[in-house]
Amino acid sequence: MAMKVMVSVPATARKGDAVEIKAMAMHPMENGLRRDNDGKVIPRFILRKFECRYNGELVVDCDWHTAISANPYLSFFVKAVDSGKIEFAWTDDNGAVERHTATIAVT
């Protein structure tokens, strides 16, 4: 299932500024503890890893577990050092990876 993701990265920033980055993914985050109407356990299906790289350097690295909400939303700050690419990657329990890339121009 191709996931929908949304990220917010400022298009431009001044060198040295802390810029806010927001990232959200559409995902049910089924925690594997619930049962369906027949009493069968609904298998766990969550995003278990989130990574953000700034020009290749890992700036945020998360291991997610069952307590993370559906449609997980993350906001964090990075220091604007250089123009370039900010890459996001979400990995689910099946190993499928959803990627998104944004660009930032630092002056």
């Binding site: 929908k4 993701v5 949304m6 990220v7 917010s8 927001k22 959200m24 559409m26 939303y73």
Partner: peptide
């Protein structure tokens, strides 16, 4: 709009 999860459905 970037904290509103409803926007994911709109995008879809």
């Amino acid at each position: 709009d970037f904290a509103n999860p409803g926007m994911l459905w709109v995008q879809e």
